[in-house]
Deep mutational scan, measured.
Amino acid sequence: MQRVNMIMAESPGLITICLLGYLLSAECTVFLDHENANKILNRPKRYNSGKLEEFVQGNLERECMEEKCSFEEAREVFENTERTTEFWKQYVDGDQCESNPCLNGGSCKDDINSYECWCPFGFEGKNCELDVTCNIKNGRCEQFCKNSADNKVVCSCTEGYRLAENQKSCEPAVPFPCGRVSVSQTSKLTRAETVFPDVDYVNSTEAETILDNITQSTQSFNDFTRVVGGEDAKPGQFPWQVVLNGKVDAFCGGSIVNEKWIVTAAHCVETGVKITVVAGEHNIEETEHTEQKRNVIRIIPHHNYNAAINKYNHDIALLELDEPLVLNSYVTPICIADKEYTNIFLKFGSGYVSGWGRVFHKGRSALVLQYLRVPLVDRATCLRSTKFTIYNNMFCAGFHEGGRDSCQGDSGGPHVTEVEGTSFLTGIISWGEECAMKGKYGIYTKVSRYVNWIKEKTKLT
């Protein structure tokens, strides 16, 4: 034993070699072989497995989906700052455009905790909710729209109204504003409101030439003092309507412009014939205590009207009353817009006519005020429907199939267009061939041609 100890002390290297040989010859039971080890760690190889990531292109799944990435790591994937920024906006807080917040056709661009709407022409605001041009839906104005110097929408209202708090709607500024039905039992019968379409306001006024200088022999019209197929109006439903009495009662109609003036057809009036105007009328054979009678003290036909040349060209006249009318729910003026808007309103496509005229061709006159909704007829169809001249200051309205029309005794009465609950004068009943005849239409004086003249002559002093 002493000898062994001496050998170990003198030859430590020998001992180490012996131990190493023993270990190498022993069977290893701690580690699995290569094949079995792979069965336990069965993990798919990654895209760049075996390579240094710093030297390969980034992978979106590896960089940002398996674990949260930084902007720089995302930049490695896209290799483009702009594309990385677009991805980053949604990656950080989701897609803010998912709810489609942009209105009126706006395009949404996502941002971090926010979004941006790219608005089409005519709109602005956070969600493109603000109209900035009158060309689109009248700028959301209830009545009139004008573009300011910086191309912003400025709404306005006709006389007797003021802008509401929203700067879009119009509200009454006087007790009985024009064009409004205020009798409670008839307010439910107000005709369907007309909503502004998209309009090209630059070209809204037709490029028409008034044929002022045409000389033409007097034409022989049949029954051209021209509501057939209409309905009984309720008291106060058309408070701007008046009836004219002269040699015979209810020979023509008219509309209240203001307390002192009536507008009617020029062919209705004769110099030297006494005319009485009755406002607030409903049943011409009954006294309903809503009527107001006034005498006409002055007749002003349009300066281009000449019955000797043509009885229905420039067929418009103004009547001055001896005493002002007292405005109330049964006696209310009709609204008159400017030339541009009167023309736009007419193009809405349908209007209402009213009167006490004959209820059928050569038949009896109506006792109760009649009204009828009539569609506008395109000019080409209008011209083809008659052998008589249709001037540019006239328009056609009615039904091709016949059966409904204005008729004798309705002449001078109103053709009105309702705009968001307020009625505007767009025409004056003038003439036609018979009444409600198939293929024939009622012919009306186009008020847009005469609004400046009306307003100039009827100013209240």
Rank of each mutant, 00 (worst) to 15 (best):
R3A: 12
R3W: 10
R3H: 07
V4W: 08
I7A: 13
I7G: 14
E10A: 14
L14R: 04
C18S: 07
C18M: 10
G21M: 14
L24K: 03
L24M: 10
T29A: 08
T29S: 12
T29L: 14
H34S: 07
A37V: 15
N38G: 15
I40Q: 15
N42Q: 11
N42Y: 08
P44Q: 10
N48Y: 10
N48M: 13
G50F: 12
K51S: 09
K51G: 15
L52T: 15
E54L: 05
E54A: 11
F55K: 15
Q57F: 06
N59A: 09
E61P: 15
E61W: 07
M65Y: 15
E66V: 05
K68Q: 14
S70V: 09
F71M: 15
V77N: 15
V77D: 15
E79D: 15
N80F: 04
T81D: 09
T81M: 06
E82D: 15
R83Y: 09
K89N: 14
Y91G: 15
D93V: 05
C97W: 02
P101Y: 02
K109R: 09
D110T: 06
S114C: 04
E116Q: 11
W118F: 09
C119V: 00
F123M: 03
E124Q: 07
E124P: 02
K126E: 14
L130T: 12
N135K: 09
N138D: 03
R140V: 04
E142T: 09
E142C: 02
A149L: 09
A149F: 10
N151E: 08
K152H: 08
K152I: 07
C157R: 00
C157H: 00
C157K: 00
C157M: 01
G160W: 02
Y161R: 04
L163C: 02
E165F: 09
N166H: 02
Q167M: 14
Q167F: 11
K168I: 10
P172A: 11
V174N: 06
P175F: 05
P177S: 05
P177G: 02
V183Q: 11
Q185P: 08
Q185C: 06
Q185E: 11
S187Y: 10
T190P: 08
A192M: 13
E193V: 11
V195R: 12
V199S: 09
I210H: 09
T215I: 09
T218V: 09
S220E: 12
F221Q: 08
D223R: 12
R226F: 06
V228L: 07
G229Q: 13
G230T: 12
E231R: 12
A233Q: 06
P235W: 07
F238T: 03
W240E: 01
V242H: 00
V243Y: 13
L244P: 00
V248L: 12
F251D: 03
C252L: 01
G253Y: 05
G254E: 00
V257F: 02
V257R: 01
V257Y: 03
W261H: 02
W261K: 01
I262V: 12
V263P: 00
T264M: 02
A266W: 01
H267D: 03
C268L: 00
C268I: 02
V269Y: 04
T271A: 09
V273R: 12
K274Y: 05
I275Y: 06
T276W: 07
V277D: 01
A279G: 03
A279H: 00
G280I: 01
N283A: 07
I284N: 08
T287D: 13
T290C: 05
N295M: 08
R298W: 02
I309L: 08
I309W: 07
I309H: 11
K311D: 03
H314C: 03
E320A: 03
L321A: 01
D322W: 02
D322P: 00
N328L: 01
Y330E: 04
T332E: 03
D338M: 04
D338G: 08
D338H: 05
E340F: 11
N343D: 15
L346P: 02
L346A: 03
F348Q: 08
S350G: 09
V353T: 09
V353Q: 04
W356L: 09
W356G: 03
F360K: 14
H361C: 05
G363P: 11
S365R: 14
A366E: 14
A366T: 13
L369C: 03
P375H: 14
L376F: 10
V377D: 00
R379Q: 11
R379E: 07
A380V: 08
T381R: 13
C382W: 02
L383P: 03
T386G: 09
T386Q: 10
K387T: 12
K387G: 09
T389M: 06
T389Y: 10
Y391I: 06
N393Q: 05
C396V: 02
G398I: 03
G398Y: 04
F399K: 05
F399M: 07
G403I: 12
S406V: 05
C407V: 06
Q408Y: 09
D410R: 12
T417G: 00
T417K: 01
T417Q: 04
T417Y: 02
T417D: 02
S423V: 10
L425Q: 03
L425E: 00
I429W: 10
S430W: 03
G432K: 12
C435P: 03
M437K: 13
M437P: 07
G442I: 10
I443C: 03
Y444P: 01
K446P: 03
K446T: 03
Y450N: 02
V451C: 08
N452E: 08
N452D: 15
W453F: 05
W453S: 01
I454M: 06
I454W: 00
I454Q: 00
K455V: 07
K455H: 14
K457Q: 08
L460G: 07
